[in-house]
Amino acid sequence: MRQYPLTFNEFKQGLQDGKLLGLRCLDCGTVVVPPGAVCTSCGSSKFERDSFARKGTIRTFTVIRVGPEGFQPPYVVAMVELRDGPYIVGNLVGIEPEKASLDLIGKSVSVGARIVPPESPEGGVEGMAFAFELE
């Protein structure tokens, strides 16, 4: 049986330990964060694990005013380009949603995460959401 190179649970534990774990493709050097089964550039499955910079740049965002059941709007969702190349989607925290404007695009952020407990004791999984803070 093949091994999955870096599982969701391992990645999530890394975030809880203050690390942004990921994969570097041994064939083309592409960084894959969050992890996947194969390189997003060349399709290779030859990886080394590493810990990557928790830094990035906001590429787009929105303020959610009507959220799914269980969320408390307003809150900001942003897409960030990590310093090592991959994009991730997370919440921009530590900012008044009313102050969010197009000026946010291009701003530098640090990358952390919020761990979300399972929906009920009977079922569901512990989840995670990336959390960004303006530098």
Binding site: F8, P34, I64, V66, G67, P68, F71, P73, Y75, V77, I88, V89, G90, N91, R114, V116, G127, M128, A129, F130
Partner: peptide, 9 residues
């Protein structure tokens, strides 16, 4: 895994 818990819609 990697987007849902941001509350994205």
């Amino acid at each position: 895994e990697y987007e849902r818990f941001t509350g994205i819609t």
